[in-house]
């Protein structure tokens, strides 16, 4: 690996092997990695909310599952990825606090994951691997060279999917 490209919250970026791409401390947000295995081009978007159409202030495309995935594909194609080759790996969508009294707030992680799965299905991108839900944070790193998604959490072993 040459360089690790960082993606922040409500942010997206792309990378080409031998570089890698990461987002740190995913909680209820979802990290979506799209990957063109033939050209070894990857992209990562760190979304916070399921649906841009439900929000008035929706200029930041990377914030939402629907517009974030579209914007990521556009950016990947612009650097040479082939749309037809793309596959996905996803992680995140945890429930960080054990709320007992507010169902909508409690389920935001799940709702994010559902929205991501639906969007990818609608546009015909296969999810190769997923590590979602639970109640802990995740740092994820993707290596286009191997196609591996590494997941690190506090007090747990590193997982590779």
């Amino acid at each position: 690996m040459k360089e690790m490209i960082r993606v922040g919250m409500a942010d997206l970026n792309v990378c080409v092997a031998p570089n890698a791409i990461a987002t740190l401390g995913l909680g209820s947000c979802v990290g979506i990695v799209l990957y063109d295995p033939r050209n070894k081009i990857a992209g990562l978007v760190h979304i916070m909310l399921p649906d841009s159409t439900k929000i008035i202030n929706n200029e930041n495309k990377a914030k939402f599952a629907d517009t974030g995935i579209d914007a990521l594909i556009e950016k990947m194609v612009s650097i040479g990825a082939n749309r037809k080759n793309l596959v996905a790996k996803i992680a995140g969508g945890a429930q960080m606090f054990a709320f007992s009294n507010n169902s909508e707030m409690m389920r935001i992680g799940d709702r994010n994951v559902e929205a991501v799965r639906k969007k990818l299905k609608d546009i015909g991108i296969e999810i190769r691997a997923a590590h979602t839900g639970e109640n802990y944070g995740r740092t994820i790193e993707f290596y286009p060279e191997t196609g591996e998604l590494h997941i690190k959490s506090v007090g747990r072993d590193r997982i590779i999917i």
Binding site: G25, L26, G27, S28, C29, M48, I55, M96, G137
Partner: peptide
């Protein structure tokens, strides 16, 4: 937990 993960909860509400 990690700061990013904890902060995601209020950040989503701000979002």
């Amino acid at each position: 937990d990690m700061a990013g993960a904890i902060l995601s909860v209020p950040a989503i509400e701000f979002g």
